[in-house]
Amino acid sequence: MTPSNLKWATLPDPTPAELARAADGEVEAFKTIVERYQGMVYSVAYNVLGNHTDAEDAAQEAFLRCYRKLPQYRSEATFSTWLFRLALNSSIDYKRRERRRPEPVEVPDVAAGEQAELGDGITAATLTSALHDLPNDYRVPTVLRDIYGLPYQEIADLTARPLGTVKVMVHRGRASLRLRLQAEREA
């Protein structure tokens, strides 16, 4: 699993003709869309769910929802924004349904080198490991807030929790991450 830097963000949205072909049931046209956006959808699922097995299932589910809903896509939002929301909702629904224990610490295979460095001495491996160790109740709201920048109210709606509770969870999640990463840097 190597990261690339947002391949989908540098590509234009699928053309209306491409979308129409996929919405008409042309699987090859749909596969082209999957190939283009699979990194984004998979990353969202991984960050919400915290392990690769569930991330793959949830990402597949997100794409199948996308396939079913293609005729409903309207270009008021960009396609990538629309798909991002589908990926987020699918991952959260998946988490709600599958209350499995996460797998043992499994850090994405981030290639060594500058890509693994996220700034201020924090590496991708240490961050994902620290995120993985957060309790689920803290991790999901913290990921939605600080990785994806969602407003608190939206996180409350998505996770079906009171707004005040969501804020407390994010604050505690941040505090745990800060202490954990500080300890790792000092070690």
């Binding site: 699993m1 190597t2 190939e35 990353s43 199948l64």
Partner: peptide
């Protein structure tokens, strides 16, 4: 710093396992 690192991580795209697009296309079919 932690929030900055998380934002950077959010802009990092992970590649799914090999054959993922093919499996999705097969399921869509």
């Amino acid at each position: 710093e932690v929030r900055g690192a998380m934002a950077t991580w959010g802009r990092t795209e992970l590649a799914p396992p090999p054959g993922f697009a093919e499996r999705v296309a097969a399921a869509a079919a």
